[in-house]
Amino acid sequence: MENTTEDYSMLVLAAVTPDDYEGGSTTEDYDLDDSGSVCDMSIVRNFRKYYEPPLYWLIVILGSVGNILVIWIYTNLKNRLKTMTDVYLLNLAVADLLFLCTLPFWAADAISGWTFGWPLCKGVSAVYKINFFSSMLLLTCISVDRYIVIVQTTKAQNSKEQRLAYSKFICLIVWLLALMLSIPEILFANTKVLDSNTFCTMIYWNNENNRTKILVLALQISMGFCIPLLVMIYCYTNIIYTLLKARNFEKHKALRVILAVVGVFVLSQLPYNGMLAVKAAQAANTTITDCSQVQTFDIVLQIMQSLAYMHSCLNPFLYVFVGVRFRKDLKKLFQRHCLRCSGKSIKHGGPLRSSVMSDAESTVALSL
């Protein structure tokens, strides 16, 4: 994520690409040719200043409400973590919530630059990327678990307890892998002062021919989109095939849920990652040299980035609240909370239990 203020040129021989976070506007203006003509990026900076803050805050508010409700359900209902997907969904809500916590910093950065110091620049950048990758990897785990439960039903039922224990270990692996994938942010995120303004950006040292930058972009595209998408396509294709053969009155509802999950993932992530692929190609071999095209590319990249961020506030509704069981549990929690607030006694005392539904019932209908 990055920002800018005054004109600051960059030789096209080094490739017309800024040191930046995926989708942020540039911190530097571009030299377009050997004659030294400069492409003024002030239009991109002004666009980011007025576009990103309100949209990011909207994403933060909507996403926080949904993910906090998910965490509230899991932490207030006894025996709610009954399946592998339950464990993944709780971790997904935590990852999305922590990811959303970084957006206000980038909104502030878009308005007035980075005023939080270089340690927080590295810290926020790392937290942002850790939770981005963990969210994508957890979505992959959910797809695999649904595949096992629906396509390999017998195997899933026989190893239910064992799989539940494995899920916690898998989540630990996911978080550790996400931490490893965030190493570039830990190493290269830093503050840069341009004309009395400070910005948090990626500063690649020993970046001969932009190789480091290309590697970082390739890592994000592959681990943050390509691999999760391929796994989702394989798993959900087999799930759809299995459901079409099943005699279940709810299978059409399940198919609609699957199409919504895959459709939203593709529509939100594909345009953004496509732009990142173009950006990597630009870093490898300068392909965009026209000033208006450079400006348009940066603006479109910012729009695609914000569209991708919307996925973090849609996850609770796609993976959780679409399910009958979660809606019932949420209703129970609100009823109990309202009774406590009114001072009335709660009937049938004792810990509030989650709705009872088997793995097969819940996942065949995808009603988690």
Rank of each mutant, 00 (worst) to 15 (best):
V300M: 13
V300Y: 11
V300A: 08
L301H: 05
L301F: 15
Q302D: 07
Q302W: 14
I303K: 14
I303Y: 14
I303H: 07
I303F: 06
M304G: 10
M304D: 15
Q305M: 15
Q305A: 06
Q305R: 11
S306W: 08
L307V: 13
A308M: 10
A308D: 08
Y309N: 15
Y309S: 11
Y309V: 14
Y309C: 05
M310R: 06
M310Q: 14
M310T: 13
H311L: 12
H311W: 09
S312A: 03
S312F: 08
S312Q: 12
S312K: 10
S312H: 09
C313M: 15
C313W: 07
C313V: 10
L314A: 07
L314E: 05
N315K: 04
N315Q: 04
P316F: 00
P316C: 00
P316I: 01
P316K: 01
F317Y: 06
F317Q: 01
F317C: 03
F317R: 05
L318S: 03
L318V: 02
L318A: 03
Y319R: 01
Y319S: 01
V320I: 03
F321M: 00
F321C: 02
F321Y: 03
F321E: 01
F321A: 03
V322S: 08
V322K: 04
G323D: 01
G323P: 00
V324E: 12
V324H: 13
V324Q: 14
V324C: 12
V324S: 09
V324Y: 07
R325K: 12
R325A: 12
R325Q: 10
R325Y: 06
R325H: 07
F326K: 12
F326S: 05
F326T: 04
R327C: 00
R327M: 02
R327D: 02
K328Q: 05
K328M: 13
K328R: 10
K328S: 08
D329W: 03
D329C: 01
L330S: 02
L330V: 01
L330F: 01
L330K: 00
K331S: 09
K331N: 09
K332D: 04
K332E: 03
K332A: 05
K332I: 03
K332G: 04
L333W: 00
L333P: 02
L333F: 01
F334M: 08
F334S: 13
F334Y: 08
Q335E: 09
Q335G: 11
Q335D: 14
Q335C: 11
Q335A: 13
Q335L: 13
R336M: 04
R336H: 03
R336P: 01
H337V: 09
H337E: 07
H337Y: 08
H337C: 15
C338L: 10
C338M: 14
C338G: 11
C338D: 05
L339N: 05
L339W: 03
L339S: 10
L339C: 09
C341H: 14
S342F: 14
S342N: 09
S342W: 07
G343C: 06
G343P: 07
K344I: 14
K344M: 06
S345I: 07
S345E: 09
S345F: 14
S345D: 11
I346Q: 05
I346E: 11
K347N: 08
K347D: 05
H348N: 15
H348L: 12
H348C: 12
